[in-house]
């Protein structure tokens, strides 16, 4: 199964040194932590809070404000379905519903039990000419259909 690692205290300290021990570096350091760990582990944020001298509550406030940050682990692959205007008009919501059905996600679940996929709604990627659009990790797939979706899922399973 896909595993995630926490950063060591030294790694976090070196990030603080790289971007500077100041408040305006906070978001960038959090972005780096998420890049390495896949999400923002609570332990890492506690270490960060002590090292950079900003209350954990404040860091939590930032983590929950921005779309990019996650407090739960991601699946191995992240599937983002675009919910921009052009994709909406072209039936992006149907792709979304079908995807969730295929992955058997119910209610507020966004990650499959085997931690293989995490699904997210995305704002516009700016690839509107190929709506509806979906992104798996860094690969963009345009002109999505249900059939195409099934094939793509197989590719990553």
């Amino acid at each position: 199964m896909w595993r995630l690692k926490l950063l060591t205290e030294e790694e976090i300290v070196s990030l603080i040194e790289k971007y500077g021990n100041k408040k305006s570096s906070l978001i960038r350091i959090m972005q780096e932590i998420q890049k390495k760990a896949g999400y923002l582990p609570k332990e890492d944020l506690s270490v960060l809070s002590q090292q950079i001298n900003i209350p954990l509550s404040k860091i939590y406030g930032i983590a929950t404000f921005y779309h990019q940050f996650r407090l739960k682990p991601f699946g191995k692959h992240t599937i983002q379905v675009c919910f921009g205007t052009a994709c909406h008009v072209k039936g992006g919501d149907e792709i979304w519903d079908f995807l969730r059905e295929k992955l058997r996600l119910i209610g507020s679940e966004d990650t499959t039990n085997d931690l293989l996929f995490t699904v997210q709604k995305a704002r516009c990627f700016g690839a509107c000419s190929m709506a509806p659009v979906m992104k798996v990790d860094n690969d963009i797939y345009g002109n999505m259909t249900k059939e195409k979706l099934e094939e793509i899922l197989k590719k990553y399973s």
Binding site: I27, M30, I62, H67
Partner: peptide, 19 residues
Amino acid sequence: SAGAFVCGEETALMAAIEG
């Protein structure tokens, strides 16, 4: 950006750069 539509508003954008 860490992702928030409101960042397009100039005072919000500055708040984001300030951390």
